[in-house]
Each structure stands twice: as C-alpha cells, then as structure tokens.
Amino acid sequence: MTKKQHNFSLRDFLFTYGFLLVLLLVIVYFSVTAPSFFSMNAAMSILHTAAPLLIIASGLAFVIMTKRIDISVGSIAYLSAAIGALMISRMGLPIPLAVVSMLVLSCLMGVLNGFFVVILNVNPMIATFGTQLAFRGIGLLLTNSMVVSLPRSIRFLGNKKVGPIYIDILFSLFILLIMMLIHSRTQFGRQVVAIGNDISIAEKLGIKEKRISFFAYVVCGLMAGIGAIIMSLQVGSVTPTSGTSYEFTAIAMLVIGGVSLYGGEGTILPGVLIGGITLAVIETGLNYIGASVYVYSFVRGGVIFVSMFADSLKTQVKPKVKIMEDEPTTVSNAQ
C-alpha cells in the first residue's frame, strides 16, 4: 500500500487534477465568450461529436498503458467502415452481417498489429505506421478511392435521440463503462497496468507479458471498429479521408485525460472521458465563437503540446503524484 501524504502540495494537486481544471477553464471561457455555448444543446453536441473518438481512444488506452503505441487506429476505422459500407450499399447484404464483419475485421487488424509488435518485436511506432498505410491502401483499393454513401434508410441512426440525448452518446458511455470495468476490475486490466509500470517486474510476477500485450492490440482494433460504425452513421458516408489523423486526436485525448505515454498510468473513467470532452469542447467552442479558421490548428497543436509537456513533467515527479484512478491498481494486484 502507498503511504498517504497529508501535506498539501500545489504541484501534486495540479498534476493529479490539472486536466479537470483545464476542462473547467475551457468551459468557463467559451461560456463567457459565446452566449449560447452554456446550454444543453451544446453539451449534447459536444458529447455526440466526441462519441466515435471516445470509443477509439478507450481501446488505444490499453495499448498505451502497456507502454506501446498504435498509430493505425484511424486506418482500422476507415477500412472497416469502408468494407461495411460496401457490403451494405454495393452488395446489398444485411446490415447485421455487415456490422459483424466490420467488428471481426477490425479485431483481425488488431491481431496483425499485435503479431508485428509483440511476436515479431517490431518497434510499435514503425509497425503500426506500416499497417496504417497498408490498411488505408486496401480501403482505397476496394472503394476505388471513392465516396461510399450509406443508404438513406440507415443514415438517420447517426442522429437518433432518446429525449434530448443522442443514442451514440449513451452507446459510447456504455462502452466506456465496460472498458473501465475491464481496466479496473479484471485480471487483464490490472496486468496491462503492471506491464506498463515495469515489464521486468511484471514478468517476474508471472504475467504473460506477450499474451496480454497482444490482446491489448486486439481490444484496440475492436474499439476502432466500433468507433467506425458511429463515425460512418454520423456523416452518412465513408470517404477516403474518413478517420484521417484520428490516431493523433485519440492520443491527445488520452494524454489530456491523464493516460501517460510512458505507460502504466491513467483511467478510462473519468480520464479518457474528460480528455475527449476537453478536446471536443475546444473544437465546438471555436465553432460557437466564430473563431478565425486559422486559429483551429494553432489551438489544437497548443493543447496537445501542453498536455505532452505536462505528461513529461508528471513522469519526472511520478513518485509523489497520485493519478486519479478507477480503482487503486498496484503490481501486487496483478495476479
């Protein structure tokens, strides 16, 4: 057990709760500058537009917690969405069959990433950069680089609401809840954290590092596939640019939400959710205040840089900082 610290430290407080403070500050700023921003409509819109990436980021979190990375999630989302759309629109196959195929295919892409990174020991950045290009290439080949529209009969699902709440918000929160339970309440989740904390200690404790890390990639692929379904329904089509740069947005969400790129730290709830909402709030807020189109990239880049810098600083003072956790996770809980 970690001994609790009773002396208040501003530095520790900022590192632990800093991302919540950032979110609050951003909300306050846009609420003051854009009169209609602080409203139920805007809140729903923020969660709605963040929904696909929240799911994708929750899968990616497992890989990053093992101190690895997967920069192919955007391409996994694109390829599975493209195949699903082709099956429905061009081949006229039943929607459930297309959905199942998308999910199976995205798992297989995760298997492939796991094989390259964990079994063949290829550097995760290089391996998933390769698969990022390859998966997108296959998608472009299959679609002939064209837009594939979804039938009008199912497009409405992307906007379907229960009361004032979009269905995809409820769905993404449900997925996050499941992912949180997997992360904090299952052996697999605890082992992922243990591997990220210290791989050699994890192995000494008997954790099958390769197997767990491999499955982290499969989970990541599956989540990219689920995110792809929501993404396609929202826009009503799949284009060759669908999912482009999702990997970096998802990584930014994770870092803002306190998932360390150095592995072993972070939470799905509230971490990933808060990270995702923070980015979506910024994007939506800029829309609301009618910001110059040139401001968007600058703000996005600035937020990502500050988050990465904070993550780096946090790692340097790690022993003193308690990360907000779903449940306390220690190496001793790993088995």
Partner: peptide, 17 residues
C-alpha cells in the same frame, strides 16, 4: 479541411450556435 466529419460537426455546431 474537406473532411466529412468536420462538415458534420462544424455544420451542427454552427446551426446550434
């Protein structure tokens, strides 16, 4: 940025704002 997701999100936010 000619991205469909941004067409959707941007249009939705602008219509609500």
């Amino acid at each position: 940025e000619w991205k469909p997701e941004k067409f959707y999100q941007g249009a939705l936010n602008a219509l609500q704002a």
